[in-house]
Nucleic acid binder design. Structure first.
Lengths: 337, 337
DNA sequence: CTGAAAGCGCTAACAA
DNA sequence: TTGTTAGCGCTTTCAG
């Protein structure tokens, strides 16, 4: 089954068209610097022979190969799916190839994979990187980098506006009369987890309600049990989970324990994944245009990889969130007897 | 922000270690054919200098670059997510790089992308390819190919056992007393859609119940409305949707029309996506180990790309399905008055 | 506008 | 076991 076919080279084309290899090369990569007539002849011969430029040879010279890598911290989270989708579409639109790598929530794996790819891709999109700041800075010296769902001074990034978003969440809960909210924290080295907590806490402070953090939890449905129990134990009337998966796990556990949502306790998630609109009750969650995040990250990366306007800046894009109200939040229960 | 750093070459290493470039090369790619002592010295110098082999140069010689592409017919379908996950894990385990491409349900886009990548990747995994047989055969001549969720004589493939699976579905419905099942067909050029229908039909025939097909439908939630209406119009007591997304859309529409599930009509999907267990009612669906599909496809592809045992066959793997019974199927309604 | 020729970094004969 | 020497296919000065 299939043998790597050799394929014609510019030598074959040059010979067949009666020109030098450099002319063939120019006809393809520098069309303006070759006579229109000869160019067309060359191109005609090329297509006739079925010539296709060898990307490896091209990459050897230029060092670039129209390929970028997207490294996601945990591919099992459906939330990333949207990011990947957006990134893939944007990359393809510019005829860039997208390499996908999963870091399995492990900084070590993440770093190793990045180093493995560093010399074979033109740049990196790092989604929710778990690497320490200094590593990121060091990588950014080797290759252009755009961070997603993480910010670091001096590096390009694309994030959702969680300061604003978390405030909305807290205001929503406060307006329902909640006085005690518990945040179920995400992974220890997740920038998002830290950001959400700090945003929630200051919003809570501003509104004069209590905010507690418990965790960290691996943000999976399966962790919802422990998380829910912990939250109830902490005496919360409102639970804000690090993401929708964890929130769904919490809903399950609460149902199991016959705790009514939202009558007894309200639950809020993050990400607005597809399933958030299907679970019972449906989940109130802080969403945003995640595919746009992916798109935007790639767009910024491409600009860094192949600059058009020579602006040497590191844009830090912040996209708006949207609080999607559904069935899992409601008025705070009366203080327990 | 970041300049593509030059980096040391084997010349630098060779000079620093006082050996020839070929020795350096061998020390890396053919360790046995170089004196242990010099090898270690070379490697020491190499790491000291921070030398990393240039993959482009290597690829130029060998024609291979430890990279495979996975082309999915529609990346918006969360079902593919699992396939991608499995494929990525398997590829990474063998230090292969996985390129991800979305074909947007368009055979033209699919073909173009494959041709664009043909000379820069070592092989292809084509997930639910929408290309005509002859195109697939032609591609398989250029590069090793493994099909997923599609079979074609002479090509490697990995599929779930839908003949068996569809029989289970029909038997399940028949055992509940259903006499009329409607299949909501998937895309016209989907091999899976054709396969499912033929398997459903023959199973129905064997059991003496009626099977009708309507469609094709784009398998999205949004198409569930039209699909549900069509199915009711066809007088079905049981609806088998091409996939879970469509099935969920059907459930929504039925709820809207106050048709009770499963009391008035039963609904079955395919894929067992995460959301199938969260919707209301929960969805009976034909699932399978989708991540294993991805894993398996990549495994076969790697064997074709870099053969270990020289077996020149084209394995056609068939993995088992599992019928997941949930709340959307129940006894057939009594014949309408 | 076009051609000749020198490499990009590495591997693979072929010699030594 | 190691070194020498051609290239892989393409781009890019530098002449013409």
């Amino acid at each position: 089954m299939s043998t790597p076919v050799p394929g014609p080279t510019i030598y074959d084309v040059a010979a067949a068209a009666g020109v030098a290899t450099s002319t063939v090369s120019r006809a393809f990569s520098n069309p303006t610097r070759v006579n229109a007539t000869t160019r067309e002849r060359v191109l005609a011969v090329a297509t006739e022979l079925g010539y296709r430029p060898n990307p490896h040879a091209r990459a050897l010279l230029s060092g670039r190969n129209h390929t970028i890598a997207m490294v996601v911290s945990d591919i099992t989270n459906p939330h990333y799916f949207e990011l990947i989708r957006g990134a893939e579409m944007r990359a393809r639109a510019s005829e860039y190839t997208l390499v996908l790598v999963n870091a399995e929530e492990s900084p070590r794996v993440e770093y190793e994979q990045i180093q493995r790819l560093a010399s074979s891709v033109d740049g990196f999109v790092l989604a929710a990187s778990r690497l320490p700041d200094e590593n990121l800075r060091q990588i950014a010296v080797q290759r252009p980098v755009v961070l997603m769902s993480r910010e670091l001074a001096g590096l390009s990034s694309v994030v959702l506006d969680h300061v604003q978003g978390c405030r909305q969440v807290v205001e929503h809960l406060a307006s329902l009369g909640h006085q005690d909210v518990v945040y179920l924290a995400g992974p220890r080295n997740s920038w998002m987890a830290a950001t959400r907590w700090s945003a929630l806490r200051s919003a809570a402070e501003a509104l004069g309600i209590r905010a507690t953090r418990i965790g960290p939890f691996t943000p999976r449905v399966s962790q919802g049990g422990a998380a829910a129990d912990g939250a109830l134990h902490a005496g919360a009337t409102a639970i804000v989970a690090h993401n929708d998966l964890l929130a769904i796990g919490v809903l399950r556990r609460l149902a199991q324990r016959a705790v009514r949502v939202p009558d007894d306790v309200s639950v809020v998630g993050f990400d607005n994944i597809f399933a958030a609109d299907l679970c019972t009750p449906t989940l109130t969650t802080l969403g945003g245009a995640h595919a746009d995040l992916g798109r935007s990250a790639v767009e910024i990366l491409l600009e860094a990889v192949a600059p058009v306007r020579t602006k040497e800046s590191a844009p830090q894009v912040v996209l708006p969130t949207e609080l999607v109200l559904r069935g899992s939040t409601g008025p705070a229960a009366r203080p327990a007897v």
